[in-house]
């Protein structure tokens, strides 16, 4: 059978989104890629913290005054965010934006000042898609919406009957293969961004990674980690990264933040969600949760323990 492969990159979600697709014919390949980017654009426009016109920005301005209606996607991501907050005992918290703004990871929104005591527990979501904040707060779905957008893009590609697809939004990626073919996975070395670490191959899985490093970041903030612990606030950067493999990219994306903060104590949660993780520490150590190596196609751990 002759098939057509296509690669496209467009800027969305504050990063470059790569879409690779193999479809039965060129027409379907082109249409599926357009549909996938459209799905990403919808999520981006609804949930951008940077854009004052997004549903998210409207929530931050008004939802503490009166219930605000949101679309189906924003509602789905809010419900997912709340679920991860509950599962992690509040370690995953979409209301830590004030700390991220203070440290210049996010721009200052045009919204009333956030209540310092506010947390995810102040967010009410009713069945009709109405959202109400019990206190003024700044919500940021950056820790989860990118993964959700990748999932939406994969769903759009599947609807077009593609054979193979990979959507990668700056490190949050998901692979699909009708025939179960495997796809190589490489992560960046947390201590040296110029080095890559090949880990193995995934098939029909999602992967997300979080590092303390942010490429190209300069100035006084370079030592600050973008991962905020709701208990202690912003922490110093460590040459460490977390990679999570899960069935959906939304889950993988959210779990990177939780594993970053919980470390190996995240095991029960990973098991509950059918996910696995690795924590890579410079210069030479990789800690893998159970199931990590098998998700990458290895029967056993492919390396040996570092010298004590």
């Amino acid at each position: 059978m002759s098939s057509c492969s296509l690669r496209r990159i467009r800027p969305w979600l504050g990063t470059y989104v790569h879409i690779d697709v193999t479809a039965p014919d060129s027409h379907r390949a082109a249409l599926s890629v357009e549909a996938a980017f459209e799905a990403i654009a919808i999520v981006h426009q609804a949930m951008s913290f940077h854009s004052p016109d997004s549903e998210l920005s409207r929530l931050n301005r008004e939802a503490h005054l009166r219930p605000v209606s949101v679309g189906v996607h924003t509602r789905a991501v809010l419900l997912a965010a709340r679920r991860f907050a509950q599962l992690s005992g509040g370690l995953f918290d979409p209301t830590v934006a004030p700390a991220l703004v203070r440290h210049q990871f996010l721009p200052t929104p045009t919204a009333p000042a956030a209540n310092q005591e506010a947390s995810w527990e102040d967010i009410e979501i009713d069945k009709d898609g109405q959202v109400f904040f019990r206190r003024p707060l700044w919500m940021d779905l950056g820790g989860i919406a990118k993964g959700y957008a990748v999932d939406q893009a994969i769903d759009a590609l599947k609807d077009y009957g593609v054979l193979e697809a990979c959507v990668n939004a700056g490190g949050d990626l998901r692979h699909f293969s009708r025939q179960g073919l495997r796809h190589p996975l490489v992560v960046r070395h947390p201590g040296d961004a110029s080095r890559s670490i090949p880990l193995g191959h995934i098939a029909n899985k999602a992967v997300a990674s979080s590092g303390d490093f942010v490429l190209g970041r300069r100035g006084s903030e370079i030592d600050t980690s973008p991962i905020v612990d709701p208990r202690h606030g912003v922490a110093k950067c460590r040459p460490r990264s977390v990679t999570v493999i899960a069935d959906s990219c939304c889950t993988a994306d959210a779990l990177t933040k939780i594993v970053s903060l919980l470390g190996q104590d995240a095991s029960p949660l990973l098991a509950e969600l059918g996910a696995s993780a690795a924590i890579i520490e410079a210069p030479d150590t990789l800690h893998a949760s159970s199931g990590f190596w098998s998700a990458l196609g290895h029967e056993a751990s492919p390396g040996h323990a570092p010298h004590a």
Binding site: P11, T15, D20, V186
Partner: peptide, 22 residues
């Protein structure tokens, strides 16, 4: 490799690159 679109290292996971310059 047993697939035909993965012909280079493209799945670098672990770096969110800002595209503000674009």
């Amino acid at each position: 490799t047993p697939f035909h679109f993965g012909d280079d290292i493209k799945n670098i996971s672990g770096a969110t690159l800002s595209c503000s310059h674009l």
